[in-house]
Design a protein around this nucleic acid. Sequence first.
DNA 1: CTGAAAGCGCTTACAG
DNA 2: CTGAAAGCGCTTACAG
Lengths: 356, 356
Amino acid sequence: MGRPRVTSFDVAREAGVSQSAVSRAYTPGASVSAKTRDKVFAAAQKLGYQPNAIARSLISRRSNMVGLVMADVVNPFYPPVLELFMRNFREQGQRVMLFLGGHNQDVDELLPQVLEYQVDGIVITSSTLSSEMAAYCNKLGTPITLFNRYVPNARVDSVCSDNIDAARNIADLFITAGHKRLAYISGQVNTSTNQDRQKGFFSRVEERRQPMPAMAEGDWSYQSGFDAALKLFTAEKLSSGEYPDAVFCANDLMGLGALDAIRCKLNLRVPDDVSVIGFDDTDSCSWHNYRLTTIRTPVEKMVASAVENMIARINNPEKEIIAALEQSLLIVRDTARLPEQISMPFIKDPKPDTAG
Amino acid sequence: MGRPRVTSFDVAREAGVSQSAVSRAYTPGASVSAKTRDKVFAAAQKLGYQPNAIARSLISRRSNMVGLVMADVVNPFYPPVLELFMRNFREQGQRVMLFLGGHNQDVDELLPQVLEYQVDGIVITSSTLSSEMAAYCNKLGTPITLFNRYVPNARVDSVCSDNIDAARNIADLFITAGHKRLAYISGQVNTSTNQDRQKGFFSRVEERRQPMPAMAEGDWSYQSGFDAALKLFTAEKLSSGEYPDAVFCANDLMGLGALDAIRCKLNLRVPDDVSVIGFDDTDSCSWHNYRLTTIRTPVEKMVASAVENMIARINNPEKEIIAALEQSLLIVRDTARLPEQISMPFIKDPKPDTAG
DNA sequence: CTGAAAGCGCTTACAG
DNA sequence: CTGAAAGCGCTTACAG
């Protein structure tokens, strides 16, 4: 409040140089003599001066801030993604303004708030924006990158993992290993992530001329996976032996819930009686009690390329649009019977030998 | 690049009013006629104008941005905290610049980067800053609030949960329920959170004239809890029956690791053979397979008061310093034998009846 | 209620 | 290399 700020003019006076010289001292590559720079820094130190990034942003038309719109930080898939974005942007000298916005329509309402601050670019994770909004950002010259969402024909970059392909592979794995009664536990049905995983799984089952999978609806949460499993394994099916012998869960949290239901509540053996595969390779999958076989999205790579691309576009708006689609990796643990030949990239996560 | 921005002058021309009028139209409570405002908004709409928050920040000396420094978003305790901060600040019309910084010394190096952007205030979670840095922020007039960290005699606000008190209560619970061989699995030993939990637990055991707890060092992670449990329950102790019968874990993740080690690897019964209590009440504690008895910090309340206080201080720098210390709540689930009389606030989390 | 004008704290041609 | 000056896009007294 009213506290007088130390400005470059104050430093200039103290150092006996011009205000421009002060500015140059803080501009990498500007033409200043070492001597002037030293005087400036000494004076700055003495006065407790630091350049004002807001003023710099205004005149230079570069804020060195990016907007990051995230869907749901509480879902364990996102914290690592957030951390990676923070780290990658920091390395590029960009600060991040964070926004939490729900689904697609929210994003359209949110974007003006982030544009207001003249961010150099915006990354949107797991949501889309309307084509009107995309056009508006484009007119402003603010680049957008979609993470985990793809919009055909829009002038926005995107980097995704190939959910359809991964889900198709899971169908193949289950079928080839001899499972006969497949099931699917869905995420929120209106999300594109769920739609892609479901479509990939079902379409491949159909291509292989197998009976369509049973399905129960979840909402990505642990509890919904637990409940969905209970719906899939009714008392009737249990007694007839006609219960699912392979369950693909649209994410890990639901996979863990299903696992707990199947083992603790239903007293079935995994993977002997039923195989379970999840998606994301969240930390808890590797816990000794679960060891859930799952799909890992190459998050490091995806974030790195999203950031790299964003920076490149900030520096060159004419750069061509990218639409990266990364392949996932099967993480083999203990919850699924798998065929001899695994038809997708995979690694085995050995049971850690931690006896000491 | 170089795309001409639409400014308030363009809108003024289009609307046939002065530039000041445009500015006033966007200032709540400013004196403009409805008619002028309508003309302005119509022109703005037509041109795709939106006020430039950076320019506004510069002249008004209010950025409506706060800096949020978080320690470790990957630890499941933090995502909910982050979400709460985002939501509360948004309600107050504040945007947040996020920074991820490790331990205390990092924060001192980070702060200049956040101050550069003229944030209206800074919240630091689970780290401290040096008194020099505190003094510098104070000189700049930028308020600091510490979340989960307390600095006596510094001119910074803080809101914490009372870790010492909660840990003392756990000692009481164990002892009163008749446990004889207590143990403690620590978090990273140099963090104040661990120090407080450890101190509270040990000091109360001492006051009650019980044998000092055994201790194994962890680092907050699941795996470290698993490993620590194995160190506590050696083959020798197992065969002599002299293994711990009550383990207090400095956080839930380690508690779950310990639980898996104790039950799956050691084949001991919980809580019959050994009681386990964690800390934080992270989501996975309530999973059917774990149902970990733990301590819940009143995070909603803490974040709300941190934000409320920050806003109050931004508006009145002379406001008195607060140092809130919130009491925690015991969440009773299935992993600990508890006395008849529970000596601290608690709630029972009933096993959800989800059979359908 | 309205407009002209000063000024927030910088960067960046421009001229020397 | 250096300084004087213009200007980024706003808000806010000030005068009417």
